[in-house]
């Protein structure tokens, strides 16, 4: 067992874990933050995307041990004081989800896209940038709309 400490959604956490614990397991099993999902074994579906030190990563392909000292944000950490993050709001407003299983990873990736590519995103860019997130329900049509709308809404007013 090894010790890890990190900040998750603004709160300091630490635990003794088996070194083979993946970040997603640490979040789901140790912290009961079950909004982050696992949809594949090969780092392709993106249901597990969270932010580590401000960057989107696949928590199913990251050891919790390597996040020692890091700041992690999950889907549960986006809304503040009851107010949804603009990207969450955009997914709801544009029907960017159906079964909801890929949605947390989609939203975390979408915010990362905006952080890297800005607030004015064309359809082509959004589709390319979503390469690491698979959705089986929506055909992506409304996800693309959601990301574009969310990007605009995230722009400083």
């Amino acid at each position: 067992m090894i010790s890890v400490s990190m900040t998750v959604n603004g709160k300091a956490v630490s635990a003794k874990i088996d070194p083979r614990t993946l970040l997603v397991q640490f979040l789901r099993e140790n912290l009961l933050l079950t909004g982050t999902h696992v949809g594949c074994d090969t780092s392709q579906c993106g249901a597990c995307v969270v932010h580590v030190d401000g960057k989107a990563i696949k928590s199913c392909t990251t050891l919790a041990a390597t996040c020692d000292g890091a700041s992690v944000v999950t889907i549960e950490g986006l809304a503040h004081d009851g107010a949804l993050h603009p990207m969450q709001e955009a997914f709801r407003e544009n029907h960017g989800l159906q079964c909801g299983f890929c949605t947390p990873g989609m939203i975390m990736s979408a915010i990362d896209i905006v952080n890297r590519k800005g607030h004015d995103l064309d359809e082509h860019t959004i589709r390319e940038e979503l390469e690491g997130n698979i959705c089986r329900c929506t055909g992506y049509h409304n996800i693309v709309k959601s990301v574009a709308a969310g990007a605009h809404a995230m722009a400083p007013k």
Binding site: S43, G46, A56, K58, S109, D112, I113, E131, N133
Partner: peptide
């Protein structure tokens, strides 16, 4: 390479 999240690691 890979996808954006993979490129971050």
């Amino acid at each position: 390479i890979g996808d954006p999240a993979v490129r971050n690691r």
